[in-house]
Computed example of a mutant assay.
Amino acid sequence: FEAGLLETLAPLAGVAVEARVASAPAEKTRKARFDEAMLFTHRGLSGPAILQISSYWREGEPIVAAMAPDHDVFEVLKAAKAANGRQAVHTALSQIVPRRLAENLCAREGVAGNLADLSDKALRRLDQAVNAWTVKPVGSEGYRTAEVTLGGIDTAALDQQTLAVKSVPGLYFIGEAVDVTGWLGGYNFQWAWSSGWAAGQVC
């Protein structure tokens, strides 16, 4: 995160939510979405959903996070307002997201007080803040903490069966040296082992 946003979100370090995180690229071919855990850290965002989407994200582009994707936040807050209008809005919101996140969201959106005193417009603003949070990261942690890299040798230059370079006899490329990127969950390990095995059969 850039410095201003980082200061605002620093109190959330350690808070995790089951989120739906999507890329919002100019090129629709790179649009992707992941439903997994998202973690606030002292430097920004992490967790499986963020690690997954980082393969599709490019610097300067935003990502969109739904932090309670299975809830219509506006309807939940409207129902809470009807049932107990004297309840504080952050208390009602904490039934959907972790309390620290609920308090932070209410403060960021300038929505405070009892539900009975809040307009539908204010409740919809919270709904947007929870389930359509658009944030533009300014960078990544780089190779030091990278789970997987992108790019590499073009697969079109390799024999599909042996991983041999078509134009250079006796030269082979395997694993992450090749432009093949898997999702989290062991796919990159499997590709490394399988491609190594394939090349090893003919070397």
Results as ranks from 00 to 15, higher is better:
residue 1 F to D: 09
residue 1 F to R: 05
residue 4 G to V: 11
residue 7 E to C: 07
residue 8 T to Q: 15
residue 10 A to P: 00
residue 10 A to G: 01
residue 11 P to Q: 11
residue 12 L to G: 07
residue 15 V to M: 09
residue 18 E to C: 04
residue 19 A to E: 00
residue 20 R to C: 11
residue 22 A to E: 13
residue 34 F to T: 02
residue 38 M to K: 02
residue 39 L to I: 09
residue 45 L to R: 08
residue 47 G to E: 09
residue 48 P to S: 01
residue 50 I to R: 01
residue 52 Q to M: 01
residue 52 Q to D: 02
residue 55 S to G: 12
residue 57 W to Q: 02
residue 58 R to P: 03
residue 67 M to H: 02
residue 72 D to I: 02
residue 73 V to N: 09
residue 78 K to R: 12
residue 86 R to H: 10
residue 86 R to N: 11
residue 92 A to Y: 05
residue 92 A to C: 06
residue 93 L to I: 03
residue 96 I to L: 10
residue 104 N to C: 13
residue 106 C to Y: 10
residue 109 E to V: 09
residue 114 N to L: 04
residue 114 N to T: 11
residue 114 N to F: 04
residue 122 A to H: 10
residue 124 R to Q: 11
residue 127 D to F: 00
residue 128 Q to C: 06
residue 131 N to F: 04
residue 133 W to Y: 13
residue 135 V to K: 04
residue 136 K to F: 04
residue 136 K to E: 10
residue 140 S to N: 00
residue 141 E to T: 12
residue 142 G to W: 02
residue 144 R to E: 12
residue 150 L to M: 12
residue 151 G to T: 05
residue 153 I to E: 09
residue 159 D to R: 01
residue 162 T to F: 15
residue 165 V to H: 14
residue 165 V to Q: 14
residue 169 P to S: 12
residue 169 P to W: 06
residue 169 P to D: 13
residue 171 L to A: 10
residue 171 L to G: 10
residue 174 I to Y: 02
residue 176 E to V: 12
residue 179 D to S: 11
residue 180 V to H: 11
residue 181 T to D: 12
residue 184 L to M: 03
residue 185 G to E: 03
residue 191 W to R: 07
residue 192 A to N: 06
residue 196 G to K: 10
residue 198 A to C: 13
residue 199 A to G: 14
residue 199 A to M: 07
